[in-house]
């Protein structure tokens, strides 16, 4: 299978503090990788390294064989926190349209194709009726749905989700997870999440990150990895087969 994302011996330090230590990661085409880990474990940093927003001090990052800065046409991204300036004069429609930026060059204006894609993406997240609202006139959860639409509008090959369902109600969460199920066949997805039960049902592979990455290229994590990452034993759901995160114990 084709390698979509590869990190080799990646180190990121803020001042003297190492946030990512010797991280090696290979994500293949069609993978759905869930990343769990404690606060401050470097989950968002890892995504930002893949996005090219943070340059590692050491190590190599490739997205579809290119450096992250050259891979913007294939990446969709949902940040943990959207922009904080919610009084900005921009409509829901314009925010989603912005997701088409990566597919266009400088100086090019948006075309009908971009507008059709925007229409479709808003339909997917069930926010079309709010298209003309100013972004600050939405609730936090509705806003997050708009950011999800923005990440889908460019038909990305790789989707990076940083706790995408924060603040979203249960019904929409379920719909979003169903959407990911559907996308999974065409798109390679990495999702950072605290929602362990959701992660364990949805994803094919799980990694645990706390500075060091514990990952065995499978959906199983050994309890020692998790205990080391979280600094304490963590109860993970391990009842039915689909929920199994831990190996049998």
């Amino acid at each position: 299978m084709a390698e979509v994302i590869s990190l080799k011996d990646v180190w990121v330090k803020y001042d003297k503090l190492a946030v990512l230590e010797a991280v090696n990661l290979t994500v293949n085409e069609g993978d759905f990788l869930g990343i769990i880990g404690p606060n401050g474990g470097g989950k968002s940093t890892l995504l930002k390294v893949i996005l090219g927003l943070i340059k590692p001090q050491k190590g190599e990052v490739k997205v579809l064989g290119k450096i992250p800065e050259k891979a913007h046409q294939v990446i969709g991204y949902v940040p943990q926190y959207g922009p904080s300036n919610i009084d900005f004069p921009i409509s829901v429609w314009e925010v989603v349209l912005m997701g088409r930026l990566g597919t266009k060059g400088l100086f090019q204006h948006y075309t009908d194709e971009d507008r059709e894609a925007t229409h479709k993406a808003l339909e997917i997240v069930d926010m079309l009726e709010f298209r003309d609202r100013q972004i600050g006139e939405l609730s936090g959860g509705q806003r997050q749905r708009v950011f999800i639409a923005r990440s889908l509008v460019s038909d990305p090959k790789v989707l990076l989700l940083d706790e995408p369902v924060t603040g979203i109600d249960t019904r929409m969460q379920k719909e979003f997870y169903e959407l990911l199920e559907k996308l999974k066949s065409e798109v390679t997805i990495i999702m950072v999440s605290h929602d362990l039960s959701a992660v364990s049902v949805l994803v094919d592979k799980i990694a645990c990150l706390n500075g060091k990455l514990h990952y065995h290229g499978s959906k199983e994590l050994i309890p020692e990895d998790i205990e080391e990452s979280y600094g304490c034993p963590v109860e993970l759901i391990a009842h039915g087969v689909p929920h199994r995160v831990l190996h049998k114990h």
Binding site: L51, G52, L53, E69, H72, Q73, I75, Y77, P79, G82, P83, N85, F88, I90, E94, V95, M98, G99, L101, G102, L106, F107, H109, Y110, R150
Partner: peptide, 23 residues
């Protein structure tokens, strides 16, 4: 006129613009 969409993206969400390859 020619950079309207880029300036808007830059002002609203610099991080996302960067990810989208906007300089």
């Amino acid at each position: 006129y020619v950079l309207y969409k880029e300036f808007m993206a830059l002002c609203y969400d610099e991080e996302f613009s960067k990810v989208a390859g906007v300089p």
